[in-house]
Computed example of a mutant assay.
Amino acid sequence: MPKNKFFLRRPFPYTYRRYALLLILINFCVFGIRFVYPNIAEYVHYYGAMNPILVEQYHMYWQFFTYMFVHQNIQHVFFNMLALLVFGLGFEKAVGSREFLLFYLICGALSGFFSFLVYRFTGQTMVFLLGASGAVYAVLFAYAVFFPRSVIFIWGLIPVPAPVLVFIYALIELGSQFFGNGSNVAHMTHLFGFFAAWLYFVIRMGIHPVKIWKETYKR
């Protein structure tokens, strides 16, 4: 991270403690509690997931953070945590564990907050937003910024450069949001994860992702 006296860009001392693994463990533990003790699953969902009415009228502002630790089913938590494992550890090693954790929590919270604004002003007040996808998409974006020449193999066969994968996912999420069949997947929150990551890089790190990608592929 560039050195800067501006307090928002003041770097943390570098440490690498594998916080990505800790986040994965916490997510599986929360899901396990809901699975093992189904009688409290409803309470975890009600108080942990993000609902516009509960946030606005009952001031449950913690839901902007807790929603990203609550998942619907085993497939939901498994694939989110698999992506966090694949992309999170590399990004964490590059920036340090404290920076990684701050990035993850802020981007996840911003994804939830932006989703709240859209839900609130479009009248979707009965929705419950849950899952780490917003934060995980932000981590994917960050991985593509720090490792722009990295290649990810889709289905283990198709090589795709990390920045191109971000672009493809953005197109898919945009198409699914506006032309989808009304599934329960929060495509909008995924896009907000990308946007939150971009804001974090520009404001906190003084990095312009698009410039990095352009310079990388000019060489």
Rank of each mutant, 00 (worst) to 15 (best):
S111F: 04
V95C: 02
N80D: 09
Q63T: 15
V185I: 15
H59C: 09
N184A: 14
H76G: 10
F194Y: 11
P159R: 06
G131T: 10
V118L: 11
L140I: 15
N80Q: 06
M188A: 08
T122V: 14
I53T: 14
L165I: 07
S176M: 10
N80C: 11
F192V: 02
F153D: 02
L165H: 05
F65V: 11
A83V: 13
W62L: 13
A186S: 10
L101K: 02
V95N: 01
M68R: 04
Q124N: 15
L117N: 12
F64Q: 07
L165T: 01
G112C: 06
P161S: 11
A186M: 03
T189W: 05
T125M: 12
Y119P: 03
A186E: 03
R149E: 14
Q63H: 09
Q57Y: 13
A162V: 05
A109V: 04
V77I: 13
R149I: 09
F78P: 03
S97W: 04
F194P: 05
I172Y: 14
G108R: 05
L191A: 04
V160H: 06
P148V: 06
F167Q: 01
A162Q: 01
V118F: 05
F113G: 00
L102N: 08
G123A: 13
W155E: 11
F69M: 09
I53W: 11
F179H: 13
